[in-house]
Nucleic acid binder design. Sequence first.
DNA 1: AAAAAAT
Length: 484
Amino acid sequence: MTQPYSTLALAEPLKRAVAEMGYENMTPIQEQAIPVVLAGQDVMGAAQTGTGKTAAFSLPLLQRLLKHETASVSPARHPVRALVLLPTRELADQVAGQVKQYAKYTNLRSAVVFGGMDMKPQVEELRKGVEVLVATPGRLLDHIEAKTAVLNQVEYVVLDEADRMLDIGFLPDLQRILNYLPKQRTTLLFSATFSPEIKRLAASYLQDPVLIEVARPNTTASTVEQHFYLLDDDDKRSAIRQVLKDKELRQAFVFCNSKLGCARLARALERDGLRTTALHGDKSQDERLKSLEAFKQGEVDLLVATDVAARGLDIKDVPAVFNYDVPFNPEDYVHRIGRTGRAGASGLAVTLVTKGDQRLMGELEKLLKTKIEVEHLQFENERPSGRQNDGRRRWQGDETGDARDDVRRQRAERRTSDRPRPAAAPADPFFDKPYEASPAAEQAPAAWETQARPGRSSVSANIKPKRKVAALFKAPQETPSAAD
DNA sequence: AAAAAAT
């Protein structure tokens, strides 16, 4: 049982904001991290998203900023005193929104800067002065070079999703930014995993960090029912439709490995009559934010995304996650399925596996420290293959591709090639539905109820799992539940 | 075999 916020020595404006947001008790990460940050110590924290991580650093950070007002600064030029760095624009946007809420009744100002948006409004805001700056690395460097962001008075820096920010390509930017900051500062680092690389980063940028760990990293939530289906590429879409229907799913995340694959799949599912939107880096930032919002509001049932959406996005109650592709990085599997089964709710994770995924499955087994049983989905119209199959077998990736697969692949490629969509789509009750404000999700039909467009043959949905198999494996260790 | 983040 965790303590209520009222036990914390927080300033009245902060307490008021917390109360207004309806929070009473702290989450475990908050209970552990807040006192440490209030004491001004560095933190190295491991916590899955959805555990209240943002409040865990925002509240004590704002408290410290309130308590130690910087002396003799002209009100017109507030220096940036706290910097929060995130690996995706959507996350930056989300965290900035939360910080604004917590700081609502204080005179502390905050701003967010990330790429894909006009520089000008950001420059304007920075010029007016902000104490808390939330940013993605690339755009922040732009502002640093343009001298619109001056970071020589930063007292606190937060590196969220730090493992992601260590990726090749991110790391140099991150290091450049950190080099602009005063050495005398408090650094808070949050990461899903404590890999050797993370530890190295921590060693060079943190001073005597307090280690906080509320959920074992590299394990998956025990409330998520996980399935792996072995399929041909051609059957992946049908499998999604079938599972949506079988489980009567209202909404789902669908993850793809590539931006192009993401765009194509979203278009195909939409043609199948499912209310779908896509989220990936080839879309404009405006479109990205709109897609996310449409999914949150329940205006669409399926969000087809790259790993840009795998981490941290706070979307309530997504009942299921599909991995249309087995993720390249096994850790991303954990992040992806972390979109479901949050805060103790039950969730479903379905991963579609093809013969080519042998190596990735091996890596996933290694990370999860378990043998993964792969289920076989059989089409009703499938010809008996003669192959013995008990519907459940240990992953071996034993088959080698045969000529038929190549034909299928070519066919699939032709079908999904960038053919322009017909200009005038036939009338469709779901697509033509007038814009509905939230809570549209309540009235909207479940994803599986949406019909294929008239005149279009729907993909065959008559596949049936040969045999239902319960959760195939369990996380090696029980993880404490996210919420109190 | 990729994605993300600057344009």
